[in-house]
Amino acid sequence: MDGERLAEVRNRAGLTQAALAEMLGQSQSHYARYERGVHDPSSETLKKICLTLDVSPEYLLDMVDSSAIDPFGGAPLSEDEATLVSWYRRSTPEGRTVIQATAKAVAATASPLTSSGQSEAGIA
């Protein structure tokens, strides 16, 4: 694992080592070993890190140059979009419901998808 990349993504998410370690159920000193390159996380821990930080395992393993997970087939997420997704994924189920309702309300008032003639089929 590339510890420098892990630290970069964690910092971009606005988390301290201690905060991320707590989310992973680990001590800060144990987590810090990942960033120092002393120890690699288990596959389960790597999965948790990727989901929490919204980053691909390939990026953390230094297999690709882009950190963005690309669910849109070639259109990488902007930094703002990645931040929103990260906040959503770190939210409680109740928080996610609020985020979804807010996004639907905003999209209903001025959706660039409908104004450009595209379908909203992908929006739940």
Results as ranks from 00 to 15, higher is better:
Leu6Trp: 09
Leu6Val: 01
Leu6Ile: 02
Ala7Met: 01
Ala7Ile: 05
Ala7Lys: 04
Ala7Glu: 07
Ala7His: 05
Glu8Thr: 07
Val9Cys: 02
Val9Arg: 00
Arg10Ile: 01
Arg10Thr: 04
Asn11His: 13
Arg12Pro: 03
Arg12Cys: 02
Arg12Tyr: 14
Arg12Ser: 03
Arg12Thr: 07
Ala13Pro: 04
Ala13Arg: 12
Ala13Glu: 13
Gly14Ile: 14
Gly14Arg: 11
Gly14Met: 13
Gly14Trp: 03
Gly14Tyr: 00
Leu15Thr: 06
Leu15Pro: 03
Leu15Ala: 12
Leu15Gly: 10
Thr16Lys: 10
Thr16Gly: 12
Thr16Phe: 15
Thr16Ala: 15
Gln17Leu: 08
Ala18Ser: 15
Ala19Ile: 11
Ala19Lys: 11
Ala19Trp: 00
Leu20Met: 08
Ala21Lys: 14
Ala21Asn: 15
Ala21Ser: 14
Ala21Arg: 13
Glu22His: 07
Glu22Asp: 01
Glu22Cys: 11
Met23Gln: 08
Met23His: 04
Met23Ala: 14
Met23Gly: 01
Leu24Lys: 11
Leu24His: 10
Gly25Asp: 00
Gln26Cys: 09
Gln26Pro: 00
Ser27Gln: 13
Ser27Met: 11
Gln28Cys: 07
Ser29Thr: 15
Ser29Tyr: 06
Ser29Cys: 15
Tyr31Met: 06
Tyr31Pro: 10
Ala32Thr: 10
Ala32Trp: 06
Arg33Cys: 07
Arg33Lys: 08
Arg33Asp: 06
Tyr34Val: 06
Tyr34Gln: 04
Glu35Leu: 01
Glu35Trp: 05
Arg36Tyr: 07
Gly37Trp: 10
Gly37Tyr: 11
Val38Ile: 03
Val38Cys: 02
Val38Ser: 12
His39Asp: 02
His39Glu: 04
His39Pro: 05
Asp40Tyr: 01
Asp40Ala: 15
Asp40Thr: 15
Pro41Ala: 10
Pro41Val: 09
Pro41Leu: 09
Pro41Phe: 00
Ser42Glu: 03
Ser42Val: 03
Ser43Glu: 02
Ser43Thr: 01
Glu44Pro: 07
Glu44Val: 15
Glu44Leu: 09
